[in-house]
Amino acid sequence: MIIFQAKPEPLPLKPPAPVPGFEWIFLVILLVTMGLMYWWLYVYIKRLVPRVRSMTREQREGIMKGIYFLPEKLPKWMNPRVWEIAMLILVIALLVAFW
């Protein structure tokens, strides 16, 4: 299926010298970032829960069925179509840059 036309000259691999105790430093960074991220999300979701619990039956049913509408009075940059165009430009730029 694949035809290898050129066999590249192998490059030697010389991994950087290990930093003593790196794994423990990394463990601390992992635990701290994990703790911060989880705490932030926990607070965020905790604030969301009372809102969800206080919904009326009508609102719950509406969500289960799927509500569709274009929210009013939103800044233009929050329109999905603006972002579709922005991302299209990003992808085309990437394609051109690495052509």
């Binding site: 009326t56 509406g62 800044p75 929050m78």
Partner: peptide
């Protein structure tokens, strides 16, 4: 995107309550 009458009511009530859809 045009909402149906029922969904429109629910959506706007929900928006007022900051429940869904709003920024």
């Amino acid at each position: 995107i045009k909402a149906t009458a029922m969904n429109n009511i629910i959506a706007h009530r929900a928006m007022r309550a900051n429940l869904i859809g709003g920024v």
